Amino acid sequence: MSAMPLPEGDWIRGITIKQPYATAILTGAKTIENRPRPWRTGWVLLHAGQQTDRPALRQPLVARTIRGRELLTGAVLGVARITDCHQDPHGSPPCTDWALPGAWHLVLADVHPLPLPIPARGQLGPWKPTPELLEQVLRQLPELSP
């Protein structure tokens, strides 16, 4: 994979996502993340929160997507780029099977799973990673070059 140039400076935020949804994003199947408010486009660290949405594990779409995968929590698992943020027009079909009505849909692309998860604490809303955390992430993803 060729190097993907990244912007200099304050260019990345963290997003904390419950399992099993974080793993579904890492598989490439879940290309949107539902949020109550809009987010800006740009790069995000994909952080699996401490909680697992247990009822979601019984949903066929989720079960098929994560089958046989470990659901790690409390760690940064990858990097992705938010390319769009939108809501589906009222009464229109959802943009994907993962879209929730009324939610803001963060469209995710350029997903890069980390070879080794990095234990970290996240928070609600966009959060700024420490320089040390970002350095650990970039060490594992040499194809990304700030």
Rank of each mutant, 00 (worst) to 15 (best):
M1T: 14
S2Y: 05
A3D: 13
M4D: 14
M4F: 05
G9P: 10
W11G: 01
W11V: 06
I12N: 05
I12L: 05
G14A: 09
I15C: 10
I15H: 00
I15Y: 03
K18Q: 02
K18D: 09
P20F: 13
A22M: 07
T23P: 00
T23S: 00
A24R: 03
I25Q: 02
I25N: 00
L26D: 03
T27L: 13
G28K: 03
K30N: 07
E33I: 09
N34W: 01
R35L: 06
P36I: 12
R37H: 14
P38W: 02
R40L: 12
V44L: 10
V44T: 07
L46A: 06
L46W: 07
A48G: 03
Q50C: 02
Q51T: 15
T52K: 06
T52L: 02
R54N: 03
A56C: 03
R58H: 11
L61K: 10
A63E: 14
A63F: 09
I66N: 01
R67K: 14
G68C: 08
R69H: 08
L71K: 00
L72P: 00
L72E: 13
L72F: 02
T73G: 04
A75Y: 07
G78T: 09
G78Y: 12
G78S: 03
A80N: 09
T83H: 00
T83I: 14
D84G: 11
D84H: 10
D84V: 08
H86Y: 11
Q87S: 09
Q87A: 03
D88Q: 11
H90T: 14
P93E: 15
P94I: 00
T96M: 02
W98N: 11
P101W: 06
G102P: 06
W104V: 04
H105I: 09
L106Y: 05
L106V: 14
V107A: 11
V107T: 15
A109W: 05
A109Q: 15
D110P: 02
V111R: 08
V111Y: 08
P113T: 14
P113S: 12
L114K: 06
I118K: 02
P119E: 14
P119H: 10
R121N: 05
R121M: 02
Q123G: 15
L124A: 06
G125F: 13
T130A: 01
T130N: 02
L133A: 06
Q136M: 12
Q136N: 11
Q136C: 13
L138T: 11
L138C: 09
L138Q: 11
Q140P: 01
L144R: 12
L144P: 07
S145Q: 15
P146S: 12
